[in-house]
């Protein structure tokens, strides 16, 4: 473990907590893409199946369980409890166009051709693009609540911090995983436009407004 990875995990945890707070406090999931939340649940479940096969550490196990439980809880709040506030008209991204290519790519490019490894690789590729429905929704509605933009900033920062973690691990431990690095780079790049808007607008107290 290193400071970059710990900061990344905590930023990730903060993002998930911010989202739960937003939905619970406002009793509304307006402005949140249920499609992205479905993809995140698929990412965590397909990546953390090794919960039953390998024990890494208490921290690792606890965090995996927290991520799985919170993503399922978010789906429950969006599609059941606060279903009436779900903006399904604007949340229209065809996630099958992300799920299928990521799975096919995982079958083609992977570190080992075993079920767990293919699913892990699929989850890595899927996580890189899982935010697209959310960014698509924000671009369609043209704005986002401030807490939603804080959620997105924390979520985007987590993988950016993981990039620093991979640089550190390469020089400190000689360890690297090109699949995770390439996917993580793409994932972080997808947030750049949002990062720019967040830093130039939200941090100045303005609302996140996308140029119409």
């Amino acid at each position: 473990m290193n400071i970059f990875r710990l900061a990344g995990d905590l930023s990730h945890l903060l993002a998930i907590i911010l989202l739960l707070i937003k939905i619970w406090k406002t009793r509304s999931c307006a402005g949140i893409s249920g499609k992205s939340q479905i993809l995140f649940a698929v990412v965590y479940i397909s990546r953390y199946l090794d919960l039953v096969t390998t024990f890494v550490s208490v921290y690792n196990t606890v965090m995996k369980l927290v991520f799985i439980v919170s993503s399922v809880a978010t789906l429950y709040m969006m599609y059941v409890k606060f279903k009436a506030t779900y903006d399904h008209n604007h949340d229209s991204f065809r996630i099958e166009f992300l799920l299928v290519p990521c799975f096919v790519l995982a079958l083609l490019i992977h570190a080992a051709f075993t079920p767990l490894e293919i699913l892990w690789t699929f989850s890595i590729y899927l996580e890189a693009v899982a935010i697209l429905p959310q960014l698509f929704l924000v671009s369609k509605t043209g704005e986002a609540e401030s807490i939603t933009s804080h959620y997105l900033f924390a979520l985007g920062s987590y993988r950016a911090l993981y990039l620093l973690n991979w640089i550190y691990r390469y020089y400190a431990e000689g360890h690297y995983d090109l699949i995770a690095i390439f996917a993580g780079a793409i994932q972080t790049i997808l947030y750049c436009d949002f990062f720019y808007l967040y830093i130039t607008k939200v941090l100045k107290g303005k609302k996140l407004q996308l140029p119409a």
């Binding site: 080992a112 892990w120 360890h175 690297y176 995983d177 090109l178």
Partner: peptide, 10 residues
Amino acid sequence: SVEGNNHDEL
């Protein structure tokens, strides 16, 4: 070496 199956990260 490229990491194989031992994924110790979240």
